[in-house]
Design a protein around this nucleic acid. Structure first.
Lengths: 248, 248
DNA sequence: ACAAAAGTGTTTTTTATACACCCATGC
DNA sequence: GCATGGGTGTATAAAAAACACTTTTGT
């Protein structure tokens, strides 16, 4: 940030002119349907040009006095009601010509997208439809064509989710508060692919670490022995913060 | 990105007005002095207000038609000449009031900083001083007060470097092309802290993986047996891409 | 000769992996 | 009873961690 910030100095070389930006925030919002073992992403149908009637990530343009994170929370709150959620910044996509609006009004206005990555509990999340039907959870394996470069942003978010699962306890932000060890295992298998570990070993390893507490409550899902419901004990997890590969 | 992008519609609620942004790029540039085992960051002395005569990360404002990455490369090229470098986006800092200029001209212009993280080889990097003495490598343990929120950005970059060292071969972008195994070990020890592994084990493990090739050339650093110079074999490393904790 | 740094090997402990097997329930 | 999913244990292989030892140089 060393350049002069005065717009008044007109430089003959076009290159030298600073770009004026509008900054958008786009959210990649994930949740997991434990019943069907599917990883879901929240999409909205655009109601305006450009890309009208095209599915897209829920997003907004940043307003005066609003921080990037505030904007991310605002968009989220407009679409779903949740009790808990995990949110972090993903990446900033900002090349020229990533938004067709740049070409039209072309006063050098650029559109930059700061993307955020969010995890919510599927059971708790209430979609705010407001009559308009253009909002839905899509299995990440079956997302339709998306507006702008949102396909790329979603893919980036998916990669981040896979990485985060390996060392951080984000899974417990997506799972219901009480879950069976099989729910947890299925989540990992769904996101990371079937070949990351054997269920018995996964189970034994996590239990030994001691941050999963058995509530004693049993649930029966059809046939088979009923499973115990476990809770994540955040305090007991503390020593494992910053340790890599806790969950393999 | 769903809002109307027309500036003309004046909304009585100030909140509803979109913010206009200038976007800056700030680079956290690291290198390692293998002779003194020090991790260094490149700082520049600001020549303008605000924060004139204050040390800061090298940065620039993004120009028309320029991508974020282009801007990052441009700043870098203005400060140092390097043959190879590693560059990736770090994080976007964008709260209101992070830049004092927002208060002054206060037409709702916001300053947003997209930070980039770069690694260069200390030996190859030629600082471009151009008479002005305000550019220097600082040991990260001894950086002075920095302008804006650059302290925070630097800390963030340092954390990223530590993480990247564990699974990606970025070390070889900071080390000279040929290095001793001790250079490599010292780099890890310097960045990760002295207690990450024992030298013998570190050495044995990496050699077994087979992507370090012995050039046969020996160097003597004072007393003791001369050490072999090794090279990083990028092709041989390929199978370890995406594998976590290759370097522990 | 001896200190200093490079490089090798050995032993112990811990962790990963692959299963086999027992347990509790629905039908 | 038996299929189904939950839950426990064991045997083997691999890797991490600790550290003793050998080699080659400068002084």
């Amino acid at each position: 940030m060393e350049e002069s910030n005065s717009k008044q100095i007109v430089n003959p070389l076009k290159q030298q002119l600073l770009a004026d930006f509008k900054v958008g925030v786009d959210n990649v919002i994930f949740s997991v349907d434990t019943n069907q073992n599917r990883l879901l992403a929240l999409l909205v149908m655009r109601q305006q040009e450009p890309f009208c009637n095209c599915w897209s990530l829920p997003g907004t343009l940043v307003r005066q006095g609003e921080s990037l994170e505030d904007a991310a929370y605002r968009t989220l709150a407009e679409k779903i009601r949740v009790k808990n959620l995990y949110l972090e910044q993903l990446y900033t996509f900002g090349g020229p010509e990533r938004d067709p609006r740049e070409a039209v009004n072309s006063y050098g206005v650029r559109y930059l997208s700061v993307s955020y990555f969010a995890l919510v509990r599927f059971e708790e999340a209430q979609l705010i439809t407001d009559g308009i039907p253009g909002i839905a959870w899509y299995p990440v394996k079956q997302v339709p064509q998306l507006a702008f470069d949102h396909q790329e942003i979603l893919a980036y978010g998916h990669r981040r989710l896979r990485n985060k699962l390996e060392y951080s306890p984000v899974a417990f932000d997506v799972l219901p508060e009480m879950f069976t060890l099989n729910d947890l295992y299925q989540l990992y298998a769904t996101v990371l692919g079937e070949n990351f570990s054997d269920y018995s070993n996964f189970r034994a390893r996590l239990l030994k670490l001691g941050f999963l507490s058995d509530t004693g409550i049993k649930v029966s899902r059809g046939a088979g022995r009923p499973a115990s419901l476990y809770k994540f004990d955040a305090a007991a997890f503390a020593p494992f913060k910053d340790k890599p590969l806790v969950f393999i």
